[in-house]
Every structure is written in C-alpha cells, then in structure tokens.
Design a protein around this nucleic acid. Structure first.
Lengths: 322, 322
DNA sequence: TTGTACGCGTTATCAG
DNA sequence: CTGATAACGCGTACAA
C-alpha cells in the first residue's frame, strides 16, 4: 500500500482531501490539514513525481539539445536554467556528441512527454525533419534555423559584426581577416555578408583567402593565426566569431612577438570573462536576455501568464587589442 | 482513450501483447508483432515515459547538483553525461546558485523519484544533513565531503600539488605563493598541508601572507596577482588551484611586463585547453576517469552488471611558465 | 468542507 | 504465445 493510502487510512480522510493538503489547497479545514500534515511527516511522505506528471500530463521539465557542453555556451545555459527555475521548470541536458540518433532522442522525449518543451542550442539533424516535432510541444532554438517552423531567439550577428568591422576601419586597419565558425551556418553567412557589404561600399578589397572556418576554441584560434601568418601577405587585423578564437589568436601572436595592436589587431565576439581578462576588444552580446527570451517563448505557450521578451542590442567593447 | 488502448482495439490483441511488442519481447508471434507495429506506426504512437517510470519505479534520470555551470566543471560534466548515456541514463541539472533551499530541491527529487541517483559537484548544505538522503538512492560526490556517508570520487589533490611544488623547487624557485579556492574545502586543506610539509622538510620558509583564497576564475587570478605584486616582498612563483586562476595571473603579469618564468613562474592545475593554449605548466588531472568512476559508482548500485573503476593518477605537464 | 469515482498509460504476474 | 487482472501513485470533475 502506498504512503498516500496509508495517510488516507490513518487520518480517516478521503483521497481528495489528502491531495488537497498535499497541494496546499485553501479549501481544507485547518484542523484537518494539521492532522494530515502530521501524519505525512510521521510517514516521511514525499509525493511521487512520476505519478503527478502522469496525472497532470506535465513534467515541469525542459530539455536542452546540444552537441557538447562548451565554454561558449555555459553562460546562455546558466541564464536559461535560472529563468526556467524561476517558473518551476527543471532542465535536462541532451548531449548528442554530434550524433543524429542521440539528438533525435531528445525530440522523441518530447513526444513521450518526458519534457514539456525543448531548447535547441545546436542541432545536427535536418531542421525540416525536426520541425515535425513542433506538434508535440514548444521548441525554441538558439542557433538560427534555416528551415522549418522552429523559431530562434538568436540575433542577426551581422549587425554585431559590422560594429567590430567599422571599429577596425576607424582605427585605420583595412587588411582584415575573418575567422568564422560553422561554414554554412546562418550566422556565418550573415557575418560574411555584412563584412563584404561594408568593405565593398568603401572600395576596399575583400580577401577570401583570409577567411578561416571551423574556428571555435582557443587551440583552433592559434592554428588559424599560424596559417594566416604563414601567408605571403599576412593580414593586420582579425575579426573573430567568438572570444575563445580571439584569445587563441592573441596567444599565438604573442608567441610570435607581434606588437598588439600595431602589428595585429584583434576583435572578439560575445564579451566573455576571457576577453575581459586578456584585454581583447570584443562585441557585447546580450546572452542573458536571449536566454530569458528563449524560456519566455516556451513559457508563453505552456504557462498561464505571458512574459514580455527583453530588448536585444549589440555593443562594442574597446580594449587593448585594437 | 489512450493510443495504447486504440492499438488494443484496432489489433484485437490484449494489453499484455501490445506491451510485449512495444518492448521487443521475443515471446510474440511474428505476424502478431507486424500487425501491431503497423498500427502503432499508423497511430503515431509513442510510449508515455511518465507512465513507464511510474510503473517501473525508475526514471532513468540522474541529477547533478551544482552551484552554477562553470568552465572548470564542464569537462567533468561532459564525461559524466556521456558515461550515463552509455547505460541509458539521462542527466538533469540542478543549479543552486549557492542557495541551500534550491539545492535541497535536488535531494527532494531523489525522494520523489524524479531521479534515480545524484551526483554532487558542489554543495552548500551541511553534508550531514544531506547524508540523510542516502536512503532514497545512490549519491556520489565530486567534491570531497567532510562528513556523512556520501562517498567521493575526488582524488587527494595534495599529491598533485606536491608534484607542482617539487617541480618549482627543482627549477630553483623557493619564494612561492599559493592561490587556493574555497578556504575550508578539503582540497584546499590537503594542498596547504602538502605545501607546508614539503617546504618545512627542506627548511624553507612558509609564507602565509602569500596565501590567497577564493580564486576561481581568470579575473580572480588577476586580482590575486595584483595583490601579491603590490607587497613589499613579492613571490617569484605561484601554485594555483586551477588553470583559470593561473591564466589570470599570467595575463596580469604580462601587463606588468614581467619576464615569464624568470621573474614569475606559474603552475596551474587540471591541464585544460586553456593552459595548453597559454603554455602554462600544469598538473594533469584525470577528469574523465573520475567522471566515469562517479557514474560507475551509481550504476553499480542501481544497475544490473557491475563496472570496474578506472585507475587515477596526477601528472606534471611542463610548459613555458616554469 | 469533504467524499466518490474515474482517469492518467504502462508494467507485471499469473493462468491458460 | 496470449489474455485477464491487478498494481503504480496521484489529480480532478462532480456531487454532497
């Protein structure tokens, strides 16, 4: 016999009344409540959340789809987790390691009602295919999605990128390299577009041979700068996809005894602690607001009240690398 | 009517047989199986995991208790998550933000059968109090626990610390500062003990005024070095609690135009990508093995088979800061 | 303020 | 190989 039933028997009250006490319903006689609470304590009672979830059709859990936890994403994750917690939602992590099958598991869990909603940080499956899961619950994406009906809270990074570029140009740097992330992502496209538009508008040459891709972490950044520095003509400035790449470039450039920023100017992206500590000029990215908006979007679908999204803006943070 | 029942009706088979098909039981006629699978597909059936969990008394979820996601912990988390996934367990994150009540929620969820086990990364509640939850399921800790019956997979960091210290001494550095994390943690104590034992054994002075605490991230590291450098007598070497602190110190020292390692030697801890990129000498910490062992410990209690823990050893990684 | 009766979607134990 | 029946632990109309 479950503890719930034991409480019913010992107290002499019905299932409904016991349930009311458990859920703090106001419609219970105070004496009754006290009596039942007493017995609950005595039995060391704790409600079974699986039973609650089954009965309510809700788990109060939100899944996060991501290839692998990484420095560049934890800030977003922390803010998202906290926003969710504020509304009584817990967060479960689905790391795919880039494996499509593993990733799909998260979406199957939305179907299977293990989670009430899904946040996509990065995904490897076809967005069109994933869109089919929208009918099982709210899905929001951080990364911009090229197809399907999955909305994204991401900003157009081209705008932020333009800030960095114009800053470099204002400082007199024109021979500028670009260090991107995923070659076909919308962010990369948007950045490339912004870069080329501004350069051409000013009549400056666009050096495609100074583009580098798949530069995510510091070690990638080092590697990228080695390959750029080894060219006949090396650039005098680099625009980066994130602060980690920028840090790697800075570290490698120092090893080469380059004067920063005279011989090499560097602009990072995101304004993380790393760029602050290393003194890297960067673009402030309103991560917290995006994370909150991501949760709000889900909440506005499955929650009772509706929350207003926060406004989003990029901002240049000038430090010692420009 | 649930889809499960629809399948029963449409196929003409009983609840039990349908369940057998869902769970790939071998005791089903192949034709029967095909027929039922067909209907399942047609109805877009997906099992309700809350119902499964309720019935089985298992969620296949493990909770992670942590104050806040941080660079220094994601490697451990990734390995743990992957090890768990390999045995069919998912992972749910409980961030407490250092709040005792929030942290307790994770332990209550073990009682409430939302999770089958718990991994403690960091905890703020009294270990004795938390020990009481051991009776609800397996709990393992990363951080070393001072009291209670919660076991830990952490290693005695004093050993690793000694490696770093002896390396510095061999290089001729004797005026050594220490940069610790939490002032009262077992790790800090163990490190301090190791440091003082070796120093005294060699007849070298132990400078307590060169101890710094609560140094976790890069910005903390910068701050620590500023305060050390500002003293009448500054140290010529620093032993750090982690690579991020070491990186911060290195960054600040460079800003002061100190020659590294001639004027200042730095030893990090953990051997992360950060130390590799910045060329910081550090102690390799077998994070992956610890993470796997943590999961194995849980698995060996609630799983069927039993897995052997991996052996653990620290190792010095010499780079350019010593 | 309390109780009745039913539903939530599966698994598990038998017996056949 | 299949089926009947009973858990699993709780929420919730509806009625009293």
């Amino acid at each position: 016999m479950s503890k719930f039933e034991q409480i019913m028997r010992l107290s002499g009250y019905s299932r409904a009344t016991v349930s009311r006490v458990i859920n703090n319903s106001p419609n219970v006689n105070e004496e009754t409540r006290e009596k039942i609470l007493q017995i609950m304590k005595q039995l060391d009672y704790a409600p079974n959340r699986n039973a609650v979830a089954l009965s309510k059709g809700r788990t109060q859990q939100i899944g996060i789809v991501i290839a692998v936890l990484h420095e560049t994403t934890i800030s977003f994750l922390n803010h998202f987790i906290q926003a969710a917690l504020g509304c009584g939602f817990q967060t479960i992590i689905y790391t795919s390691q880039g494996d499509k099958e593993k990733e799909l598991q998260a979406f199957e869990d939305l179907r299977s009602k293990r989670v009430d909603g899904l946040l996509i940080m990065t995904c490897v499956n076809d967005p069109g295919k994933l869109s089919a899961y929208c009918r099982y619950g709210p899905i929001i994406s951080w990364q911009r999605m090229r197809a399907g009906q999955i909305p994204s809270v991401a900003m157009d990074q081209g705008e932020g990128y333009r800030l960095g570029l114009e800053h470099l140009l204002a400082k007199g740097f024109t021979r500028i390299a670009n260090v991107f992330g995923r070659p076909n992502s919308l962010n990369t496209k948007s950045r490339r577009l912004a870069f080329e538009a501004v350069m051409e508008q000013r009549g400056l040459p666009v050096r495609h041979d100074w583009y580098r891709y798949e530069v995510y972490g510091m070690l990638d950044g080092e590697q990228a700068w080695r390959s750029l520095a080894a060219m006949n003509e090396a650039p005098e400035a680099v625009l980066c996809a994130n602060d980690y790449a920028a840090a790697g470039i800075l570290n490698e450039a120092r090893r080469q005894n380059l004067a920063i920023p005279q011989q090499l100017a560097i602009v990072g992206f995101d304004d993380t602690e790393l760029s602050a500590s290393l003194g890297i000029t960067t673009i402030h990215n309103p991560i917290k607001e995006q994370a909150q908006n991501a949760f709000y979007w889900i909440w506005n679908i499955i929650g009772d009240e509706s929350l207003e999204p926060s406004p989003l803006n990029f901002q240049l943070v000038e430090r010692q690398t420009t």
